[in-house]
Nucleic acid binder design. Sequence first.
DNA 1: GACCCGTGGTT
DNA 2: TAACCAAGGGT
Length: 358
Amino acid sequence: MPVVQHSIHNSGDIAPALLAHYDAHARTLPWRTPPGQGFANPYHVWLSEIMLQQTTVAAVGTYFHTFTQIWPDFAALAAADDADVMAAWAGLGYYARARNLLKCARVVVVEHAGRLPETEAELLKLPGIGPYTAAAIAAIAFGQRAVVVDANVERVVSRLFAIAPPLPQSKPLIRDAMDSITPKGRAGDFAQAMMDLGAGICSVRAPSCQLCPLAFACDAKRLGNPEIYPAKTPKMAKPQRTGTVYWIQRDGHVWLVRRDNKGLLAGMRALPDDQWTARLDGHKTPPVPSKWQKLPGQVSHVFTHFSLLLDIAVTAWPAGADDLNIGEWWPLKSLDKAGLPTLFRKAAEAVMRAGERV
DNA sequence: GACCCGTGGTT
DNA sequence: TAACCAAGGGT
C-alpha cells in the first residue's frame, strides 16, 4: 500500500496516461533512444546521467558530444590520461564527477569486462553512482523496474499527491508515492517521461496544467495551488569572501599550478592564489616575492555555498630567472586548452583585457 | 543528517 | 538584481 492515499482517481491510471503522452511528445536528446525503439547504449546513458547531475540539458550537450567523440566507450575512457579528462570537463562544474567518472570506467573495464552491471544494487557500488543514477541506468539502459527519483520527480509527485511536508523531510513519502505509480514494464520510459514533464509542463513557478496529461489525477491542481509544491526548508545565505589570484607571466607564458585533490576545484589546473576558502578570506601574501601590480576592479564568482570577490595581482617574471617551485609555464596562445575552471578563466580574461589597454 | 562541491540560465 | 534552480554523490 502506498503511504500516500490518492484521492478520486486510481493510481494505476497515471502510468498509461503519461506513457501515451511520452510516445507522442518525448524530447529528442543525443543520449536517448526514441520510445519503442529499444534501449539506449549503456555507455551513453551512464555518461549522460553523470553529466546531468545538478546540471541542465543545455549545458551538457556539447560536453556529451566531445566526450563520446574522444572516448567512444568504456575501454577508451578507462585508458585516457587523467589530465585530459579533467581538462575536457572544465567548465561543467562539480569536478568530483569527472574523477569518479574515470574511476568508474576503470572499474567497469577491470572488474566487469567493460560492461556495466545491470542491477540497481551492483550499479550503486560504482564510483559516482548514487541512488538516483543507479535506478535511472537500471531502468533506462537495462529495462528493469526501478523507482527513479530526481528533482523533477520530487516536484511532479509532490504535486500529484499534494505532499505537504517540506523537502528533504518529505523524501521518503515521495519515494513511496513514486513506487506506487511506477509500472512494471517501461519503467525507463516512465522515468524519462516524468523528467520531461517536470522539465517542461510541470515547471517550478508556473506549471502549465492545461497541457498536462496527469492533470486529471493531480491533487495540487484540484486544490488550486500546484506552484506551492514542493515546500522546502529555507537555505542559509551564502557568505561573501575575498581572495587573490596571482598572474606570473614570462615570455608569452603564464605560471599554472595544480590544485589539491581534495576540496574546492580539486585536481584542477589553476592560477596560484592566497589560499582563500569558503570559510576564510585570502591572506593577500604573494606566492613569491616580486614587483606585484594589482589589476583595477575585481572578478566576482558564485560557488554553491559562498560568493567570491577576487583581486588579481600581476607580475613579470625575469627571463632566464629560475623556475618557480611546483607548476608549469603554460603558453598564453593555448590557454583555452589548459582546462581552467570558470573562475580562473574569468581572471585570465580580465588580465587579457587589461593588457589590451596598455 | 549535515556539509561540501560549480556553473549558467531564469525570473 | 538577487535568489532560485538543475537527470545528486561523497564524506
